[in-house]
């Protein structure tokens, strides 16, 4: 491996092994379905998924847009809440003690049971889906931030205090920037949950979206179209996941460099 290769080329060469593996898997799948003559309602071949997916691409796309919208709004709400809560907890030891158990408890809620109730309470609109996404993504973001702030070196805090920094200035000059790597890690975990959360919420009840699309196609035994929608979902997640790296590189360009030195 040459150390002079550019970031873009390094990224491409990093995904090559995954692509090879996926291609091998698809070939084996296609071969098995053809050789064993499996009914497409049970397991369609990859080629069938691709051709039927393409034949229905307008319908799939029309359902992808609402899912993207729900994901964006839900994740946006989750981010806003996560930041607000993490900052509040960082400034108030009392809140930290009060909220930490509640945060953990929020993760033990069985979403599978809660989501239908949310639909009953709030209808088929945006709100119940946003709530589901917030419930599943809020925790990693809040915890990532809270722990990122708290991981601030004691000596760094002392240095700032010796400079006469108020608690707010300690936060602004050290705790906040220091927590950014931890935040981006949490962001990546959260964003993958966000898409699956959206699909799940739609699956339970919606008027449009990939989740309800899958549910309808499953009921009419169009396994090929279910899988086509799954592929779109995966592409959506991977794209969002990749975007976090892009944002990270723009927001905290210092991060990777410092780590590579050590």
């Amino acid at each position: 491996m040459s150390t002079t290769r550019t970031g873009g080329r390094r990224t491409i060469s990093a995904v090559v092994p995954s692509l090879v593996l996926v291609a091998l898997g698809l070939v084996a799948w296609q071969w098995y379905v053809t050789a064993a003559d499996v009914r497409p309602q049970i397991l369609p071949s990859p080629l069938r998924v691709a051709t039927q997916g393409w034949a229905f691409h307008e319908q799939i796309w029309a359902n992808t847009l609402p899912t993207m919208q729900v994901t964006a709004v839900g994740f946006g709400v989750s981010l806003a809440l996560g930041w607000a809560l993490a900052i509040a907890v960082d400034f108030s030891p009392w809140l930290r003690r009060a909220l930490t158990p509640l945060l953990v408890a929020s993760q033990t809620l069985p979403i599978i049971a809660i989501a239908p109730l949310l639909i009953i309470w709030f209808g088929f609109g945006l709100l119940p889906k946003v709530l589901v996404i917030a419930l599943v993504t809020f925790f990693p973001i809040a915890v990532g931030l809270i722990e990122g702030f708290a991981a601030t070196d004691r000596q760094a805090t002392n240095l700032l205090r010796s400079m006469g920094a108020s608690r707010w200035k300690q936060f602004r000059y050290v705790r906040l920037p220091g927590a950014m790597p931890s935040f981006f890690t949490a962001l990546r975990i959260g964003i993958t949950y966000a898409v699956t959360g959206a699909i799940f919420a739609e699956y339970v009840g919606a008027t449009a979206g990939l989740g309800i699309f899958m549910s309808l196609q499953k009921n009419s035994f169009r396994t090929d179209l279910v899988l086509a929608a799954v592929v779109v979902t995966a592409l959506l997640s991977v794209t969002l996941f990749g975007l976090t790296y892009l944002v990270q590189r723009l927001a905290i360009p210092w991060h990777g460099k410092e780590r590579r030195r050590a």
Partner: peptide
């Protein structure tokens, strides 16, 4: 302080 504590950002 003992460590230099220069901030990477």
């Amino acid at each position: 302080p003992q460590q230099d504590l220069l901030f990477p950002w």
